[in-house]
Structures are given as C-alpha cells and as structure tokens.
C-alpha cells in the first residue's frame, strides 16, 4: 500500500513551504502548460525551467520523479493513435503528439513534485484554507484515511478466498467470486460508515465540521509564489 503514499520525508526548501502555495503553484503550472501551443516552444521551455527549479528546491531524485510521472503514458495512447487520422496544415501530426506528450509529462512532473513534498493531510488542510468547501475536503480526507483500511480488508478477503480455492479458477467462477467479494466489501463499508458516524456523533458532531484555524504564510512562501507567478506570466507573454 506504500504506492498510495506518495509523500517522501525530507527537509528541503520545498518540503517546508506552505501547502497552499505549493498547491497554487502546481495548479497554475498545469493550467499554464495546457495553454501552450505548438507554435510556442519557448513558453514550454520557461515552464520546464520553472519545474526544474522546483525539483531542485525539493531535492527530488530524478529517477523517482521520472518513475512516478510515467503514469501519464497510457493516457497519451489515445491522442497518439488518433493523430494519423487528423488533418493539420501548420505542423505534422507527429509533432503535435510530441508536444502533447511533453506537456502532459511536465504536468505530471509538477503534480509529482507537489505530492512528494507535501503530506496528504497538509494538502487537504491547504485546500480548505484556500476556500475549497469543507464538505469536499472532509470527504477527501475520509476517502484517503479509509482507503488503507478497505485495502487491508480486500487483502484479507482475497487471502481467505485463495486459501480455500487453491489456485486461480476459470474466468467465469473467478468473476462470480470477485462479484461476491465486492458485494461483501460494500456491505462491510456501509457498516463501517455507520460505526464511524456513531463515533462522530458521540463526540459532539452535529453535522458541520469545526472551522479550520487560520495560518499565515512566511516570507519564503510568498517569495516562491512570486517567483512562480512571474515565470508563468513570462511564459504566457513571451
């Protein structure tokens, strides 16, 4: 389950920055990358340079970043397959595919940098402080919290199935058993949700989460935000 925990403990400049700043910079960078056209490679270069600076500030290992960012590869398959059928006059379809691939990969790298240097709980807090409705951030944190518990249950159920069924069976019985496991998991999840609600109610929960305490950004946070925004403004205007 460690694959679900993308945060890596560290003491870099980026690790210590406020989650709100990192969230804003990452999302702005993804938005900026999505607006870069094929005709403006210099804009792409500026975004890539900013990303390089962020990776350096986070002291992130290139191997780790590349490995994690390759998650975008399957999503590039569809545009790559459809390109030969598109009629474009300005540039070759394959150049377009290459630009889309680079843009997507850089966006993935930006998110990898964010997730590797920020704890999920800080990210959720940061989103709440940026004005994302508490209901959404609370649901997000519950989902993340119980993902581990549910995966544990799935593993136990699957172990019990394997121990009693020996090796993997034929496709149809396998699907039937998988269906039963999913249904059983659903019922258990429902039961758990009721129990969690009881735990919340007896600790005074009356339907709304208590407001989150305000927090001030440091000078270094503001400096990072300013640097990133200036770079992205440059990328848009150049």
């Amino acid at each position: 389950m460690s694959c679900l925990e993308s945060y890596r403990e560290g003491h870099s400049f980026l690790h210590h920055r406020d989650a709100r700043v990192k969230l804003l910079v990452s999302l702005a960078l993804v938005a900026c990358l999505s607006t870069v056209g094929v005709q403006h490679p210099s804009r792409l270069a500026i975004c890539a340079a900013l990303l390089g600076v962020l990776l350096l500030l986070g002291r992130l290992s290139p191997g780790l970043v590349v490995r994690r960012s390759l998650i975008v590869l399957p999503f590039l398959l569809l545009p790559a397959l459809s390109m030969p059928f598109l009629q474009t006059t300005a540039v070759s379809p394959w150049v377009m595919v290459a630009v889309i691939a680079v843009k997507s990969w850089l966006a993935a790298v930006a998110l990898v940098a964010l997730m590797t240097t920020t704890r999920f709980e800080d990210l959720v807090d940061g989103a709440a402080r940026l004005g994302v409705p508490r209901l959404l951030t609370t649901l997000g944190s519950f989902m993340y919290r119980y993902l581990f518990v549910l995966l544990d249950e799935v593993r136990h159920m699957n172990d019990a199935r394997l121990l009693r069924s020996g090796v993997r069976g034929a496709l149809v019985p396998g699907a039937r058993i998988a269906g039963s496991l999913v249904a059983s998991l659903f019922v258990r999840t429902y039961d758990r949700a009721e129990r969690i609600h009881n735990c919340m109610v007896v600790r005074g929960f009356a339907g709304t989460m208590a407001p989150i305490a305000p927090q001030r950004c440091s000078a270094a946070d503001w400096a990072l935000l300013a640097l990133a925004l200036v770079a992205m403004l440059g990328a848009v205007l150049v």
Partner: peptide, 26 residues
C-alpha cells in the same frame, strides 16, 4: 465518553492531533 471496540472507526481523521481535537472543537 464511549470508546468503541474498533479503533479504526474511532480514528477517522488523517492527523492524530485533529482526531483528538475533534471532540473539544465540537
């Protein structure tokens, strides 16, 4: 105060601080 049998039900927030602070905040 009721402490339930399964601690995973009782600890529903991400950070332990927030979980312990949940009741006092309410």
């Amino acid at each position: 105060g009721l402490v339930f049998q399964h601690p995973d039900d009782q600890l529903f927030l991400l950070r332990l601080y927030d979980d312990v602070a949940f009741g006092p905040r309410n």
